[in-house]
Write a protein that binds this DNA or RNA. Sequence first.
DNA 1: TATGAATGAGGGTTCATTCAT
DNA 2: TATGAATGAACCCTCATTCAT
Lengths: 198, 198, 198, 198
Amino acid sequence: MPSPRTDNDTFIHRARRTQLVDTAIAVIADLGTDRATISRIAAHAGVTRGVVTYHFRDRTSLFDAVVAHVYELAHRELDTRVHTTNDPRESLREFIIGSLDFYADHPAAMAALSAIYRSPDTPRSDRAEHRSEITDLQDILVAGTKSGQFRDFDPSVMADTIRAALDAALVRIRSGTDIVGEKRELWAIVDGATRITG
Amino acid sequence: MPSPRTDNDTFIHRARRTQLVDTAIAVIADLGTDRATISRIAAHAGVTRGVVTYHFRDRTSLFDAVVAHVYELAHRELDTRVHTTNDPRESLREFIIGSLDFYADHPAAMAALSAIYRSPDTPRSDRAEHRSEITDLQDILVAGTKSGQFRDFDPSVMADTIRAALDAALVRIRSGTDIVGEKRELWAIVDGATRITG
Amino acid sequence: MPSPRTDNDTFIHRARRTQLVDTAIAVIADLGTDRATISRIAAHAGVTRGVVTYHFRDRTSLFDAVVAHVYELAHRELDTRVHTTNDPRESLREFIIGSLDFYADHPAAMAALSAIYRSPDTPRSDRAEHRSEITDLQDILVAGTKSGQFRDFDPSVMADTIRAALDAALVRIRSGTDIVGEKRELWAIVDGATRITG
Amino acid sequence: MPSPRTDNDTFIHRARRTQLVDTAIAVIADLGTDRATISRIAAHAGVTRGVVTYHFRDRTSLFDAVVAHVYELAHRELDTRVHTTNDPRESLREFIIGSLDFYADHPAAMAALSAIYRSPDTPRSDRAEHRSEITDLQDILVAGTKSGQFRDFDPSVMADTIRAALDAALVRIRSGTDIVGEKRELWAIVDGATRITG
DNA sequence: TATGAATGAGGGTTCATTCAT
DNA sequence: TATGAATGAACCCTCATTCAT
């Protein structure tokens, strides 16, 4: 008996997987990873528990699919924006604004991703693997420092900090803050933090 | 119930509680709240599970003790530093540097606190109660804006962002970054983010 | 939660539930409610503990099923008998004899019901709900007093006492007394207690 | 070190035991045997848990002491009353009225005794042992039948039934029924049940 | 493709009991 | 006498997972 989890690739199969990933995202975003049990996800999707474990080998595999899905989304919607310009400051601005737009468009997806990456117990195989799919923030920062547009800072610390700031913004956005204000405030913060001191 | 969990105050009792709180902090910091089960904490402390439930009514109560302990630590080590000056920029600087110093001194404690406050399932009774004991970052920011030392920003967004940046720094510090560099970099970032634009 | 505990209705499912309810009745009747743990019931049924919690959400739900089952039994076997006549004394006699017959047919079921209703800790959701399904003894007594067949007594005290007498008879029947003798003796007692004094 | 549970017989020792037995009675009557844990009894008595297990080898032993105490009470207050007359009907009447008086005077004691004897899991060593201390109801019944004052019934069934009726009355008395009415009603019932049929 | 059934590990909690002080 | 400390068994419950159909 061929395990459909690996080789099957029918339409229904793909549709079910997509549906379950979407549901998982919603449940994880709402309840956190721990309470996002297979039972709850199945119930939320209107299917029996067995369906989930039929399409995904195990919980780890489902959560991996969630991560992959969100990264793919982000890749599609964000990367092109950042690469429309070669100007580091412009790129950085696009990255910030674009990220916030992305959060506003897919708050659950992003929240799920954060939740998964935050909880150390949540099973996932990869982590680093997908990171590269996304615009490398650090590259932008290094380029800006080299070009003299940014002041001289530790790019890894700065990248880390900016990501943390974006994460915090996500929480606010999910609770309904004004997205326009968020963009303005956050860009002002990041701009100030990177700019050459007068 | 004349359970020692509430009224006992012998030396051994206090010592055990302290030991268990410390162990809980270590386990929570390492594994996260969900995997910080009573069993694991007990094993890590080299005692049987019963010892934990003997000294703490339940898991909630143990986690509450952890929160209280860390807040007390932070209060003692941080608050006085910030209040030595009335200058908002100086206060902010003290807050940043002091926080990082505190993280360097008690990395696990701070990580545990973060973990507890982050996970929505983790049982804890208070939350807001202790918050006020600690320096209110937002007050400093508002004061600085009023005094004209800081630019005009949304203080709640700024406070949120700074806290997120500190949280991210904590992770780096726990993995062994140079604390001096961290202080320099983070203060530069925060200073730049709040400063009046040239 | 698409748990089979609620909506499933397959043959196996019903069979298991019936089996477990029957086993629960036996164990409760033998050991009392407190010692009728899920473990013991499962062991007695020859299944693992998980099977029980799979088919019944929790212990309360299992005990509720027991209560419902016994009430349904009693309803079917007893109610019709009592209502075949309108004569209060005849009704009362049918109630006594019928109850004892029922006890003889289902001694464990009745013992379990008694045990559940007696223990205040035992979880059960309903209690009063089903009471009405069964013949209301007190109504018969009031009717008999009004019609002049019974002497003038407090009907609630009398009903309470008769029920207690039946409960005591149940214990004897379970230990193997002669059912014919029980019927004769108990009816003589109740008849004498309610009859008009010569 | 001499275990005080067995041989010690100081004043304090006896006083403590009495106090604990009294408390146990109150707790058992209120909460039932299962919830009458050592902790709760100790708390209710205002002592630590250790005190209880110091004075009583184990829970069984404490419950045994409760049983013995109540039997002794009943013996003192009830037996003499019954034996003031040789007339079986008078004796029976004294037994009924006297029992109800006793229940009214010591409702908790009697309720505790019932609770202990009812629950099969409750640890107790004796049961039958003490029964003889109390007036043997069955003897009265047999005597009355022989003397022709009572009709011809199975004395063990009748005794059992009367005891059950008294138990039911105890519950009502504990919830505050009129004791005078109870005496009247119950004696009428028992009298009717035993009397020669007109 | 789907699912009902079963399993067993593990979690938190309560409690009687033992023991050293 | 008294008690604080510790222990371990047992409880109910949740869940991920496996398997036969």
